[in-house]
Every structure is written in structure tokens, then in C-alpha cells.
């Protein structure tokens, strides 16, 4: 059964493409997928722990809602509202951690909120499911619009071309010499791939022999855009510029003149096969 990651080229209407290669799949694999996604990643947990009591946030692409109960050591001091395109994942997210959570069915490209209504926003392993650069940029803009222009904070995670050695996935595209070169050049885009999900259907009869169970496994190919080094920063810069926000480094923040709206990358990095960027919006 082909379960390796393989390169694809996106064609046709991107919305229909994502419906077929992302949304429909998550609705079908929701239960199995969720049972494998329960451990929060450390940098995200740390980010949420650092926020003050009384802040409300948006988890854009919440999936099974595993970040909604955080921070675990201060339950109820923050409220994170989860948005996702998969109704079946939301049904799981709705009661994650044995409490009722707030979840909304929606697309990360849309903006069903008051502008700047949230204090913080996270988008974890979501934007890489969008099939064009423009759509990924639109998702970042939505995220920046959702947070306060004065103090809003955001954290974005996307899948990286640069893969963890421990990752069980075989990435043929990244292993070809040509591709590795592409990845190292900052301006070059990442790679569009299908990442298989092998769904093991629970057997209908308890005494079904092992071979029969094997045969009922079904493979779903999810679309991912694997980000190149520097591509996430570039995407955020383009989104901010479209919004007429100044992009200013941490070091130069204090030198900004009065009356300016901007965004600063507080930290960027790579963790477990993902690139991340933490952002802060400000007004002088």
C-alpha cells in the first residue's frame, strides 16, 4: 500500500480542491485522527501559559481542540474558541478535557468576528492545508485581523520541508538533490505533497481474521504545502504589508515613531518538523 509522501501539482478550483483533499478527509478520519493527536507541543503550551488572566483567543483550525483546555495549570483563566472546517472534529473538540468548549464551524480564510476582538490567536498545523500562496496569505491576514491591534499575540505552526530525523515519514521529494537545493534558497516556494492517512476501520465482527482487518484499511491522501525555510516569515511579511502594517524587528521596536501600527516577530524557529512564528501586534 503506498503510504509515502509524494509530490503533487494543484489544479482546478482551489476551494473544490481543498474540499476534496482536506475537508472531506478530516470529516471521515476524525475519530481515528483525534485518537493520535492528544499531546500539546511544548512551545504552544508555553505560549498559552504566558498569557494573562482574562484573555480570549481564537484557535484557527482547532481540529480536535487539544489546545482549548490550556494552560492546564491555570484552568479557566483564558478562553480559547476553536474554529474548524470539519464538523466531525468539532464534535470531538466540543467536550475536550471533560469540559464544554466553544467551537465554531468556519473556514480559516473567512472572518466571522469583530475586528481585533481577540487578545491572541493560534493556528497550528492548518495553513499548510491551503493550496495556493494567495490563500495561505489570506489566512494569515484573517489571523492578524482577529487580534487586538494594540496588544494582540499570535502563534503559527506549519509543516516544514526540513523533517525531523525521528519522523517516521518518508519524504521522497525532499530527498532528491534538486529539491534540497530549492529548499535552501529563500525565495523559492516549498513543496506541494499528498500525505497519506491510513484509516484502520474497526472490524464489524470481533472474530474477523487478521488478514481481513488489514484489507479494510483505507488510505486518504491529504494535501499539504510543505514550507521552505524562511517562507513562513515571508508570508507573514506580505500579509502585514497588505494590511498596511509595518513589520519591525524586536531590536528596532523602540525606535518606531508615534502613530504607527505594526507587527513584530517575537520568535521564529523549527520544532518537530514544523516551522513556527510568534507575532505581536502593536500601535505606537
Amino acid at each position: 500500500m503506498p503510504t509515502d509522501v509524494r509530490a503533487v501539482s494543484v489544479s482546478g478550483n482551489p476551494e473544490e480542491y481543498e474540499d476534496e483533499h482536506v475537508h472531506a478527509i478530516y470529516d471521515e478520519i476524525a475519530g481515528h485522527f483525534s485518537s493520535t493527536r492528544y499531546k500539546p507541543w511544548p512551545i504552544i503550551a508555553q505560549f498559552l501559559s504566558s498569557l494573562p488572566a482574562g484573555w480570549v483567543g481564537l484557535d484557527s483550525g482547532t481540529g480536535n481542540g487539544k489546545y482549548l483546555p490550556l494552560p492546564l495549570d491555570r484552568p479557566g483563566q483564558l478562553w480559547t474558541i476553536g474554529l474548524d472546517r470539519s464538523i466531525n472534529l468539532l464534535r470531538i473538540a466540543q467536550t475536550v478535557g471533560q469540559h464544554y468548549r466553544e467551537v465554531v464551524l468556519g473556514n480559516v480564510l473567512d472572518f466571522p468576528w469583530r475586528y481585533g476582538a481577540f487578545d491572541y490567536a493560534i493556528s497550528i498545523a492548518t495553513i499548510h492545508h491551503l493550496s495556493t500562496h494567495e490563500r495561505r496569505k489570506a489566512a494569515v491576514k484573517s489571523l492578524l485581523h482577529s487580534i487586538s491591534p494594540n496588544h494582540g499575540r499570535a502563534l503559527i505552526y506549519v509543516w516544514a520541508v526540513e523533517q525531523d530525523n525521528l519522523s517516521k515519514r518518508v519524504i521522497p521529494v525532499a530527498q532528491q538533490a534538486g529539491e534540497i537545493q530549492t529548499v535552501k534558497q529563500k525565495d523559492k516556494p516549498g513543496v506541494d505533497v499528498f500525505v497519506p492517512w491510513v484509516l484502520k476501520e474497526p472490524s464489524s465482527k470481533p472474530d474477523t481474521p487478521a488478514q481481513a482487518t488489514q484489507a479494510s484499511a483505507k488510505v486518504f491522501n491529504r494535501f499539504y504545502h510543505m514550507f521552505a525555510a524562511g517562507e513562513l516569515e515571508q508570508l507573514v511579511t506580505e500579509a502585514a504589508e497588505d494590511m498596511k502594517l509595518q513589520v519591525v524587528s524586536k531590536q528596532l521596536r523602540t525606535t518606531v515613531a508615534a502613530g504607527v501600527s505594526g507587527v513584530t516577530a517575537v520568535q521564529t524557529g523549527w520544532e518537530r518538523s514544523n516551522y513556527y512564528i510568534e507575532l505581536e501586534r502593536w500601535r505606537t
Binding site: A53, G54, W55, P75, G76, W79, H99, D119
Partner: peptide, 29 residues
């Protein structure tokens, strides 16, 4: 375009843990 108006609603009441720190912080917003 805000606030949205409720229509034909069914509601349920469920107790939630009281957290005054959260409420004080959220109130101004």
C-alpha cells in the same frame, strides 16, 4: 453587522467553574 440576533433558540443551562480573575480581565473587552 453586529450583534447577531438569536432566533428560535433552544437553550440549556450548565454549571461552569467560577473564575473571577478571568471575568475581571475580560470585562473591559
Amino acid at each position: 453587522n453586529f450583534p447577531l440576533q438569536f432566533q428560535d433558540v433552544q437553550i440549556g443551562l450548565r454549571e461552569a467553574e467560577f473564575n473571577p480573575d478571568f471575568l475581571r480581565g475580560f470585562l473591559p473587552k
